[in-house]
Design a protein around this nucleic acid. Structure first.
Lengths: 347, 347
DNA sequence: TTGAAAGCGCTAACAT
DNA sequence: ATGTTAGCGCTTTCAA
């Protein structure tokens, strides 16, 4: 018993199976891979041997000889944002349906770790790379990746590789327009901390255009380093101050739902009523936004469709079914009018 | 140009580097692995070649020859639960700090897919397996895994492998006792849908014991298949009915924060005031529970410490630094009294 | 229908 | 200080 345990410390190999079944490695290989034309009797003998040895094919060896893996690298900005977690979940399930596994790399920490993560993914010879909101420097990532790998940017964009996303610019414009239509004149944008990201810039751009068309003045808020502090037009103050000052915004368009919830929370703490005193629009439609206590007006992204398309696309590229120049897929967004937006308060 | 592109379709190998640098493969290998005793000049020549060829060591080949990987398999119940997403994030970062990558497998879908996922992880020769709330059948998973792999159950338990978790039983008991101390007599438990899981059973057990000691009668609620419908003591009704019936509970202990938020939402829709009419206690302390609009009384788990310990443990087992029987680490929980619990309403 | 043999890219003795 | 060699476990021609 003790002996057989020890003996099995090293997992059985195809060779062990072949010996036990008294066939050659090739025959075992044929059985494993379901190649037709194996004598049923032989097949049974091999399978018997596989069972008794608890043999598990070594994918590492297979990958080496086949010169390809069924691994997809996924780079996630921040898993603790439910939007990305949900996206990752969808991606995982579609990838699995195509026979791909996910190696992942969450990389909020710092830019070098991030690059190391990407490098590690590549050294593992992932068949493709999926970026879910990459925040780092686009150029250095591009260099680390090189040319020989299908890349898909999902709900983000770095200017190279395929892109699957909603039209962030149009979406932000629509969200802002909704506020303008409600009569608001002082509408602020609550920016994401990752201001380099293209998606973030596009959202901000859509916001700015809507304001400009209405003859209004943009005003950008963003978290400062320390909690509860925001930067607004170069000066720093508490979020409560920003929300209650004389020239306070009557409406805020937030870069994402998490930020919108932060605003809601600050408003509550400043005894501001939503939407009577302050309207808030978010972006993403995460699960929590739907409950009665939040009931956030937001731009919904079609998460499942985005994930499916991204996976189909990258799998297509890997298999050579998709070729040619970078594609750009823009899926429709939806403005969900819930209860955090209402008419502008009288001046 | 076109030619050089084509030429680089296949990534450079150690052999290419050796040829270009006019040394042997071993020397290149020594340079890559930072083996001391390489002539500085030679080293420079090799590094030059590596740069010009954009050479990236093939981890797959290395893994094959070294007979080990630096991959950790992580099985996640439900990534869309922020608790698991946050845990996964911590695990990823500690694993990366130890030089390990994560292959992941989210598997709510169905049990077979789940087993396939585990099998795939094993065939990829992950060095260890981390379970974050495994929901499937413990025995079949155990069989799929076999004996030759370090396993750590993190915030869950299947009765085999190391366990890193809080004392779910004691925690649930404490949470329930808090409600009892507030004078509540009809306290229900809102169960997780995954009732086989040991952690879930432990929580339910702690709840039951606290009630029993106080001479009160347990009552279990859980989601039915269709939304908004719950099972309570064999009968099925809407959640609103369950919360407003004559014999309604005045307090609910929920299996996790997500469920607690569901209760809050249902209470809002039934015009029940929290905590005046209904007290609610959760479990996990996810980020959203902290905002003013939720302000959920809950049992907090030390997420970062749990993740760190789990990773240290599994890395220790892999490296042989940790040996012997399965360990069971119980980390302290904290009852966070916030604003969803208050005195029982007068009868 | 089965087997023999070459080799995927790398590491790790062992020689030189 | 560097090179030679023998595999790691598998797939895949090609022969038998």
């Amino acid at each position: 018993m003790e002996r057989s345990r020890r003996a099995r410390q090293k997992p059985a190999t195809i060779h062990d199976v072949a010996r036990l079944a008294r066939v050659s490695k090739s025959t075992v290989s044929n059985v494993i891979r379901d190649v037709p034309g194996v004598n049923p009797e032989t097949r049974e003998r091999v399978q018997e041997a596989i069972r008794t040895l608890e043999y598990r094919p070594n994918v590492v060896a297979r990958q080496l000889v086949q010169q390809r893996t069924t691994l997809l690298g996924i780079v996630i900005g921040d898993l603790s944002n439910p939007f990305y977690a949900e996206m990752a979940k969808f991606v995982e399930s579609f990838a699995a349906a195509h026979g791909y596994q996910l190696m992942f790399c969450n990389t909020q920490v710092d830019e070098n770790t991030e690059l190391d993560g990407i490098r590690s993914l590549i050294e593992h010879r992932v068949a493709g790379l999926l970026f879910l909101a990459y925040a780092g420097d686009a150029e250095s990532a591009r260099q680390a990746v090189g040319e020989q790998l299908p890349i898909v940017f999902l709900t983000c964009d770095a200017g190279w590789g395929d892109v699957v996303a909603v039209d962030d610019f149009a979406a932000a414009r629509a969200g802002t327009q909704h506020l303008i239509d409600l009569g608001h004149r002082r509408i602020a944008y609550f920016a994401d901390t990752v201001h380099e990201a293209r998606a973030e810039r596009a959202r901000q751009g859509g916001y700015a255009l809507a304001l400009q068309e209405a003859g209004l003045t943009p005003s950008i808020l963003r978290w400062h380093d320390r909690p509860q502090l925001v930067e607004a037009g170069g000066s720093i103050c508490t979020i409560q101050t920003a929300l209650t000052a004389p020239e306070r915004p009557t409406a805020i368009f937030a870069a994402n739902d998490l930020h919108a919830v932060d605003i809601l929370d600050a408003a509550d703490q400043a005894s501001l009523r939503v939407p009577e005193d302050l309207s808030v629009v978010g972006f993403d439609d995460i699960a929590i936004s739907r409950i009665a206590r939040i009931n956030l007006t937001t731009i919904a992204q079609p998460k499942e469709a985005l994930a499916r398309l991204a996976v189909d696309l990258i799998v297509g590229r890997i298999g050579g079914k998709v070729q040619g120049a970078h594609q750009r897929h823009s899926l429709p967004f939806t403005l969900l009018q819930r209860r955090t937006t209402g008419p502008s308060p009288a001046p």
